[in-house]
Design a protein around this nucleic acid. Structure first.
Lengths: 260, 260
DNA sequence: TTCGTATGGTTCATTATTTGAACCGTTGGT
DNA sequence: ACCAACGGTTCAAATAATGAACCATACGAA
């Protein structure tokens, strides 16, 4: 891993719950010498990727991302497209829909929409990070990713978020096989209790899996009818969003469709 | 300049008009060896900062910025605040308002709003980049920035965008002195012909100038009354936005107010 | 076809940069 | 006054970045 990657990895320690990080803390988190962390933060700061907050000298994410994100959206309007699809899905199914993209070995949510017909809805956070092994989106991605990638991703510790989280690699492998045949991942209370989710994979122009579109409903509200409605909506919307974003479905996905 | 800065500088070659850049082209643009450019792009790609588009193997900005921008906004809701202020300003004055932040030696627009009362409006681009020497926002920033920074920023070639662009450093210095006394920069057809703009500076928590809020009107519509309305609106909104974003006005700005 | 010239990507000895222990000067708590 | 933690800096030693030359490929012209 080169110096640039190390420097950029510092950015991943910022999160919603830890938005300010001091020099010493950062060097500890990253397992780096303080000098190294300092020089890297200085360079990131020069680029506007981090900045030092107020009176405290702690660092936080910088303003450069606003411009770069806008520029990214101007060239590849993924978020806009994803937003329009989740808006539709939420309206169709009456449940919360979201699109997450692969970012390293985690998923980041780039768009979500609530249906406003029920008082009880699964809620989402901006920039929420989802683990691959514990979410239906993650299962959809793992099932259709390069096997080497999936293997590597599951090498990491598999945290049990709930009592139902799959942490056994054999059971996960069986689940993936199942997802591959149906083209759809389903998870109940895997990441958050009493949340029932479905997800389908998304692919890029090289037919590589890049994320998933998912629908999350309160487990209590799940009926066979709702389940069918969700599955039908996702099986239509997933491929459509893939095409909208300029992607192509791989044989591993389309052959399944033909077999059905 | 360290390796990290060099790698990050590659990102600045992407723009609205040049969203795809090949390896060779990038190495030429950055004045780097192809090997170096390639390794850096590979590392940026691993972080999701660039990605290779479609069938062509050219690079473009990656999806990581979506998440990081969302996270930045979650910690520092600058854009939201800026948006609310420009919305107000556009409604008040009937002209296009925008907020731009300093990014290196350029300004990037993070929020803008149109007034919908006239057919003719100055239009803005997302992620538009403004030069410091040729815009009223730039003049506002230069006038209230650290003199060393301003000097350095003006060392670069001063492109003449229109016949009225100030490209003479002495004239620019005089202009800056003027801006410092009034607290407000005014430019007519400096960046785009027939556009008359006013701008006031914005400051961060350390009292450093970080950008400007501006109003752009068609030159043909500018009357003494409109001019006064714009100036009054900006002189109220600028300091207010500074405070909203957690910043403080420096003595160089407040003393001017006291002197008036 | 053949040639010429682009392209993206790779190799490896040379070179320059990164690294880390120890160090300051401050700050905040006891 | 003390201690501990903070952000930040120094400099020899270790490591990573660099660039010329190199493939393989793709495209257009002759």
């Amino acid at each position: 891993m080169g110096t640039v990657s190390k420097a950029l990895s510092l950015l991943s320690f910022f999160s919603r719950s830890r938005s300010l990080i001091g020099l010493s803390e950062m060097s500890r988190l990253a397992g780096m010498n303080k000098t190294t962390a300092h020089r890297m933060l200085t360079e990131l700061q020069a680029a506007g990727f981090v900045e030092q907050a107020n009176s405290s000298r702690e660092y936080r994410l910088g303003p450069a991302f606003l411009r770069l994100a806008a520029l990214r959206e101007a060239t590849v309007p993924m978020r806009d497209l994803a937003q329009s699809v989740v808006d539709e899905l939420a309206a169709q199914t009456g449940e919360t829909a979201h699109v997450s993209l692969l970012n390293g070995i985690m998923l980041s949510t780039i768009a979500y929409a609530y249906a406003h017909q029920h008082g009880l809805q699964v809620t989402m956070d901006d920039a929420e990070i989802l683990p691959l092994h514990a979410t239906s989106s993650g299962h959809a991605v793992l099932a259709f990713s390069d096997p080497a990638f999936a293997k590597n991703a599951l090498e990491h510790t598999l945290e049990a978020y709930t009592a139902s989280t799959l942490t056994d690699r054999k059971m996960l492998a069986a689940k993936m096989a199942d997802v591959r045949t149906t083209g759809l991942a389903e998870a109940i209370s895997a990441f958050e209790t009493d949340v029932h989710t479905h997800a389908v994979p998304l692919f890029d122009a090289r037919q590589a899996c890049i994320g998933a579109v998912a629908i999350a409903a309160p487990a209590a509200r799940m009926t066979p009818e709702l389940r069918e409605a969700i599955r039908a909506a996702l099986l239509e919307s997933g491929p459509r969003l893939t095409r909208l974003m300029g992607g192509f479905l791989p044989p591993s996905y389309t052959q399944r469709e033909a077999a059905e």
